[in-house]
Design a protein around this nucleic acid. Sequence first.
DNA 1: TGGATAATTCGGTTATAATCGAAGTATGGA
DNA 2: TCCATACTTCGATTATAACCGAATTATCCA
Lengths: 230, 230
Amino acid sequence: MESRPDFSYVAKLMGDSSRAAMLEALLGLDGLPTNELARKANVSLQTASGHLAKLVEGNLIRVEKHGRHRYFRLASPDVAHAIETLTVIAPAPNIKSLKNFSRAEKVRIARTCYDHLAGKLGVSLTEAFIQKGYLAEGENDFLVTDKGEKFFSDFDINLDVLRNQRRYFARKCLDWSERRYHLAGALGNAVLLRLLDLHWIEKLPDRAVKVTRTGRVGLYESLGITDCKV
Amino acid sequence: MESRPDFSYVAKLMGDSSRAAMLEALLGLDGLPTNELARKANVSLQTASGHLAKLVEGNLIRVEKHGRHRYFRLASPDVAHAIETLTVIAPAPNIKSLKNFSRAEKVRIARTCYDHLAGKLGVSLTEAFIQKGYLAEGENDFLVTDKGEKFFSDFDINLDVLRNQRRYFARKCLDWSERRYHLAGALGNAVLLRLLDLHWIEKLPDRAVKVTRTGRVGLYESLGITDCKV
DNA sequence: TGGATAATTCGGTTATAATCGAAGTATGGA
DNA sequence: TCCATACTTCGATTATAACCGAATTATCCA
C-alpha cells in the first residue's frame, strides 16, 4: 500500500477512552505517576500499566523513573497539538447533568491547554493584548508589536529568552470552547507562569483555572479585562 | 468526567485501518465513489459502506449523491490537517520490499497533500520561493513579499482572490517525509493547479506526482530548481 | 532484614466491532 | 417495464483487545 507513516496506529492508541483520559490528564500537568493516571482514567492499576506501556511504545508519552515512582509526561508539544487538532474536529459534548454542566462551565471559562491559558480567559486575555496593541494578529501566529515589547518587558517576561527556545514563539491556538484563538507557544506559557507567580490565577483540579481577587483587580487595571467571573 | 469534545471518538474512527485507507485516499482527490473507496481500502463494498456511514456520522467526510453514485470527500481542511498532524507523530514506515521502496520513493519525492504539493518537490518549490524572495517565512505561515506579489501575478495566480477565500492563505505545512515545510493553504493549492495547468507536473496513481520534461525546464528557468528527478 | 508501597506481568473472561454473504433498496437506461 | 448497476442493510462469524484478580518484581525505609 501507501508507504507513509501509519496515522491509524497513533489514532488507534488515542481512540481508547482510558488512554485518552490519561493523555488528557497529561495535557495540563507536567508529569503524573502511574497510580494517579489510573485514578484519572478510572481503571485499575494493572490496566493503566498496560495502557501506559502502549503509549510509551507508540512514542506518545515518555517515562522517567524516580525510585519506585514512574512519572509520565507527553512526549512532545506535537502530541499535544495532535490532541487539540482532534478536539477541534470532535463532536461537541452532550451535557447530561447539572454537576457536569457546572464543571463544563468552569473548564470552558478558564483552563490550561498544554502549558498555556485557554478558555474564555485565555481568549479574553489574548484579545485584550491585541486591543491594547501589544500583539498583532498574523495568519497562524501572533506578532509582538513595539508597544508589546515594552509591555511584556515591564510584565517581567523576557521575550528574547522565549524567542531562543526551540518551540513556537507566539502561536495561535484555536480554542475549542470559544471557537476563537488564544495565545499559545513559549509566550503563552510565559504568560501563564507569570499570572500564577502573581497569584492572579490559581489552578483547580482537572486543568480548570480560577481568577483570584487580586487577579481580577490586576487584570482590570493592566488590561481592562472585566469579565472575570468564576 | 471532563466535559470537553471527546477526541477519542474521532481518533477511534481514524484508528481503523480500512477507514484510514479511505481517508487517505480522499486526501489527494476531490471526491471518490463508494466502490472506488472499497477498492482502495481492499474491503468488500458492504464493509466500505458501513465504514463510510460512520465517517459521515462523525463528520469526518461528506457525501454527495449523483443519481446512483455517491461521492465522498473530506468534510473540511481541518480533517486533513488532523490527519497530517497525526502523521507527523506516527512511527516511520518499515520498507519491506523493493516494490514498496520504489513506490515510497516516488511518493516521498512529490505528491499531493490534500490540495497542494508536498514531498521533496513541494519543499524545493517552497524553498525556492523563499530564496528568490517571493515568500518570507513567518512562524506558522508564509508572507508574500512585494516581489512575490509581482511574481505570482505574472504566474497567473491572483492573490487577492485567494486572500478572500475562507481558508488559510499561505500556510506552513510540516512535510512528514522531508521534515521541512511546504506551502499549503489557498496559495499552495493555486500553485498546484497552475503547475498542472502548465503541464509542468502530472498526477500519478495514489497521490504521487511526476514532473514532466516541460516542467523540468520551466522549474529551472523560473525558479532555478534543478533536482527534479522522477 | 522484613514489611510497605509502587508497578509490572500473567492468564482467563468478556465486550466490541470488523467482516462478508445474502437480501433488499435506489437509480439509470434501453 | 425490465435489467443492470450502485449502494445499503441484516445477521452470523470471528478476531481483537480491554479488563481485573492474582502473582511477581522493584524500590524504599525503619
